[in-house]
Design a protein around this nucleic acid. Structure first.
Lengths: 214, 214
DNA sequence: TTAAAAACTTGATGACCGTCAAGTTTCTAA
DNA sequence: TTAGAAACTTGACGGTCATCAAGTTTTTAA
């Protein structure tokens, strides 16, 4: 279990601990019984974090029938979008077992950001970094050949660590996922690149062999 | 040519016009002669926007040799990252022809955000929306079959517009690019889905035929 | 240290899809 | 209205890669 609920939310988890604690102070921890309604559209919009338990998030269609959007388990969260932009107008959350749930009120949060502009600047900074990482991943995934994706990834990573020798930060399985391929194919591609003299490898230890990293 | 330099920068271009103008007021427009240095690491860090002309962005390696990172043409920009986080410590920009260049100073910009917390909140909001869109695209690109990517895209779009009939917002060519495939394959997949009775299509007019949009 | 699990590799196979080239339809602007 | 361009379609083909299954190696934890 995380020390702070807000650490579970990607939006916040890269923030310095001080800022995280400022936000944590705004959070209301509460216990709900099974089948109890946690929030509905008349509530203030909230970020909802499941500290422990489970809940389901649903909307009601015209016929009044539930439309389950998401099932939340321990450690999950929802409603990041309600902290900004549109408020929640049609979504309900109900505990599906006895649960401990953290709620962060939209207005409280916006007020904090207005009072502490530094906080929103840091959040913005984190988010811009994230955007750049995602764009890079999309650029990679758009290369049709796995070989090119892998090479591009390795070059980028080498540039980032500033060295042509490095240890892969991901397991093959995860790297395969990141590159939109399978461990099998990835394994073969590594061997291919090694045969071509592009790199040397011992397990996850990689050494790139070309002159220029650009 | 855009009315405002800052509209060229994705970070800003979805902002309300008022906010854009506030930022634009901070921008220094300047003319540079061919080969003139626009900025170096001793300058304050700046966002640089090429209103007209061209420039090259480079670093110097240990031997003092130029390492060209990027070539900027009319409408291009660079240094978005210097507005936040790390300052520029090693990059030079030089005009490669007579150019009109807009510079936005990091400190000016941060000061504005601190004075106007609303601004950074809006920027953050835009950025979060962008993150969500990018994550969706990655999720799509990770599906190995084009067919699945297309169907997933169509379902998501239908949900967004709240209707099973809609007009594709992208040309085939662009949709193909977005889905990481080619116009040819995309065309074939549309026909396949039509034959299967999943949808009807007349040009870019789409109608999904399955019961449930979820 | 040793056994079990997890990670990684290897092989065979066929479907999928990118490519190229040549069509057809739709759009655009004079 | 019409010619030209752009967008889209169709066909044939071959390479890439996902899949499945059965290895081997490395890691983990008792």
């Amino acid at each position: 279990m995380a020390e702070l609920c807000v650490q579970l939310v990607p939006l916040f988890n890269a923030l310095p601990i001080d800022e995280q604690m400022q936000i944590e102070e705004l959070v209301h921890h509460q216990n709900y019984r099974k089948n109890e309604l946690v929030l509905d559209p008349t509530s203030n919009s909230n970020l909802i974090i499941l500290a422990h338990g489970s809940a389901r998030l649903y909307t009601l269609n015209k016929e009044g029938h539930e439309n389950v959007i998401q099932v939340l388990k321990t450690g999950d969260y929802a409603g990041e979008n309600w902290l900004f932009g549109e408020a929640n107008t049609n979504t309900y959350v109900e505990a599906t077992e006895d649960s401990e749930i953290c709620l962060l009120n939209r207005n409280d949060f916006l007020a904090l950001m207005k009072k502490q502009p530094e906080l929103s600047i840091k959040l913005l900074e984190q988010n811009i970094i994230k955007v750049r990482a995602l764009q890079k991943q999309i650029q990679l995934l758009s290369l049709p050949k796995v070989e090119d994706r892998l090479l591009n990834y390795l070059q980028t990573y080498a540039k980032k660590v500033g060295h042509k020798s490095f240890i892969l930060p991901l397991k093959m399985k995860d790297l395969a996922l990141y590159l939109g391929t399978t461990p099998e194919t990835l394994s073969r591609k590594f061997i291919l690149l090694e045969k071509r003299g592009v790199l040397k490898r011992k397990l996850r230890q990689i050494q790139l062999l070309f002159k220029k990293i650009n």
